[in-house]
């Protein structure tokens, strides 16, 4: 019974809380800039306001709206599936299902701007593809190594794990993929320059833009929540404690990422994916060495 209540609360919070956390991030950035900054609920005010605005449909972009609705539904399903599968094992391959769903989501995400007949949108989408080819592709590789090293394909099996150096290195790489997937500086290259700002969503307005922002916040939450659960699974072996600790760690991680994003500068569009690739390759090489040395 308690498990059901905890899962329900976590699911509801995972959908409502990311937008509040975005407001917290804006406040933290403002404090770092020595500003007062917007209220913590500002991101929710923005979204509620957008739902009350007129919907201006871009020409020939019905596909984009359909894909956006698909993206939102899949994103919510993914967060629900992840939360439920931590406590109740749904299949023996829950982690694999989550990886597959996440990759489908990413594919839909980069397809949306390409279906809109706007130069800035297409350019923003192309930049996102370049980044996805490094980040999400390496996410699959990292998760592949994780499954190969541990033989674990569901959260229930995490109890068998113990912390080792090569697993921690792999999880560090996974946390970096989470930072990049959340579109923070310097990996917001799809919208990095003023003329391309909001490149991906330049044609969206009103409720559709509100839905897009809401989905993006949930996505930002998920990319921190998933590595946090895998990391904490090395130390915590009861599912309820794991999911609660995972939720709290995600909030702490969000704040850390916000501070990092406020401190970091922008990078060149062509430089960011290559630098990222080098970092991933070094981390993966170190984890392979660690695995064969059994450290």
């Amino acid at each position: 019974m308690i498990e059901h209540i905890v899962v329900s609360i976590i699911v509801v919070l995972s959908i409502i809380f990311p937008t509040i956390l975005d407001g917290v991030e804006r406040k933290i950035k403002a404090r770092i800039h020595s500003r007062i900054g917007p209220p913590i609920l500002q991101s929710w005010y923005d979204i509620i306001k957008l739902f009350g605005k007129e919907q201006v449909m871009p020409r020939n972009s019905l596909h984009a709206v359909m894909l956006l609705i698909l993206l939102t539904i899949t994103q919510v399903f993914l967060i629900v599936y992840t939360s439920v599968s931590i406590i109740f094992q749904i299949t023996q391959f829950d982690i694999v299902v989550i990886i597959a769903l996440f990759i489908i989501l990413q594919t839909i995400f980069i397809s949306i701007p390409l279906t809109i007949p706007n130069t800035f949108s297409v350019l923003g989408g192309s930049r996102e593809i370049a980044l996805t080819l490094v980040n999400e592709a390496l996410f699959i590789v990292i998760m592949g190594f994780f499954i190969y090293y541990t033989g674990i394909t569901s959260f229930k099996q995490l109890t068998q794990l113990s912390p080792t150096v090569y697993l921690l290195i792999l999880l560090l790489a996974l946390f970096i993929t989470g930072y990049v997937s959340s579109g923070r500086i310097p990996f917001d290259i799809a919208e990095a320059e003023p003329e391309l700002a909001s490149g991906l969503m330049i044609e969206f307005s009103g409720p559709i833009l509100g839905v897009f922002l809401l989905t993006f916040h949930i996505r930002r939450f998920f990319v921190k929540f998933f590595p946090s659960i895998l990391f904490l699974g090395l130390f915590i072996h009861t599912p309820i404690s794991l999911i609660i600790a995972g939720f709290i760690t995600t909030i702490i991680l969000w704040i850390i990422y916000a501070v990092i994003a406020a401190i970091l500068g922008r990078s060149r569009v062509d430089l960011a994916p290559i630098t990222l690739l080098k970092i991933y390759l070094v981390l993966i090489a170190l984890s392979i060495i660690g695995y064969y040395l059994k450290v």
């Binding site: 020595s34 917007p38 923005d46 201006v56 700002a197 909001s198 969206f204 833009l209």
Partner: peptide, 21 residues
């Protein structure tokens, strides 16, 4: 800029008229 900080009033500069109020 941080000195006047219009964002504290919920004001945000957007790059597309589609997003603007």
């Amino acid at each position: 800029t941080p000195y006047f900080d219009a964002e504290r009033f919920g004001v945000k500069l957007v790059a597309s008229p589609r997003h603007a109020d």
